[in-house]
């Protein structure tokens, strides 16, 4: 209460000029952040012919539904296939990834055993490994066992998230009290039962955070699928749109589908993002702890 009034009093002490300057600066920055998305929305509603002929920031003929129809029927509906692939890779990959990260991070936080700190530093080292450096050797390994050009080639490496284990360990030590585990053990509950019925519930908000981080990492991934996949029907949406974008020089009519497809693939994720905002902040706060 007293904090609040103190804050308010100091706010009124600030000069109008500095408040205006700050607001103006932030508004300029917001134009910068929102401009590309606004442009994409406008461009997605236009017929192909208007893209170059009309002002890019002003709406012209409203053609969004026809663009969507073209997008989803092009090449036997391959875009929908790509979108579904992205959902499969990202939702299943992040789901499995969160589960194994939670089990591992929980064990590293709550069980005492020899080599625990060593294992944790190996995981931390994994956070620093550039994942693109892994893609080429993984391609060779997978091609020798015939995994290249399958769902598994993208899915399997995606489930591993050292950062997720790091977060899970921090969250488990903060959210799960030692006494609770002791009493569950005295009641004769097994460790897995304790984890799934007690610990995982206490960790639930942080598990959402871990899921979101991994979901975005997989959803945005481009290099790994590009190295692993040649079959178009297995592409995630990023790789598919990249391929289409490369063909617009020869087939200019593809341009409108690239634009509409980009919009369709970012809007659902942005909405989920805004709705689940608070989970990001807990994760990022924990991630920056030393």
């Amino acid at each position: 209460m007293s904090n609040l009034t103190a804050g308010r009093r100091s706010a009124s002490r600030e000069s109008l000029a500095s408040r205006t300057a700050v607001m103006a600066l932030m508004l300029v920055l917001m134009v910068y952040f929102l401009l590309p998305v606004y442009f994409l929305i406008v461009a997605a509603t236009k017929p192909q012919g208007d893209l170059a002929a009309t002002n890019g920031l002003a709406f012209s003929h409203f053609n969004l539904f026809s663009n969507l129809h073209t997008l989803f029927t092009r090449s036997d509906g391959i875009f929908l296939k790509w979108a579904l692939n992205s959902v499969i890779y990202a939702v299943l990959g992040a789901g499995v990834g969160t589960l194994i990260s939670a089990l591992c991070g929980y064990a590293l936080a709550k069980f005492r055993f020899r080599g625990r700190e060593f294992l944790f530093s190996v995981v931390l080292g994994g956070v620093l490994v550039p994942t693109t450096a892994l893609a080429l050797p993984l391609f060779l390994l997978f091609s020798s066992i015939g995994l290249v050009n399958t769902y598994w080639a993208v899915f399997l490496p995606s489930i591993v998230s050292p950062f997720g284990v790091y977060l899970a360990r921090i969250f488990a030590s903060a959210a799960v009290p030692e006494e609770l585990l002791e009493s569950a053990r005295l009641d004769g509950a097994g460790e897995f039962r304790t984890f799934f019925s007690v610990a995982s519930r206490l960790m639930a908000p942080s598990l959402v955070t871990i899921f979101l981080f991994q979901f975005v990492a997989i959803w945005n991934n481009f290099f790994l699928p590009m190295v692993m996949l040649q079959k178009e029907s297995l592409f995630p949406v990023t790789l598919g749109l990249f391929e289409w974008n490369g063909q617009t020089a020869r087939a200019p009519l593809l341009q409108e589908s690239v634009i509409t497809g980009s919009l369709v693939s970012i809007v659902p994720v942005i909405i989920v993002f805004v709705l689940l905002q608070r989970f990001w902040r807990t994760g990022l706060a924990a991630g920056s702890l030393k």
């Binding site: 998305v37 975005v216 481009f222 990023t238 749109l241 980009s262 693939s265 942005i270 993002f273 905002q277």
Partner: peptide
């Protein structure tokens, strides 16, 4: 608004 671009894949950001 500032955090929103994080939801956009690098490929799509570059296309935009």
């Amino acid at each position: 608004s500032a955090f929103m671009p994080y939801a956009v894949p690098g490929v799509i950001a570059a296309i935009m």
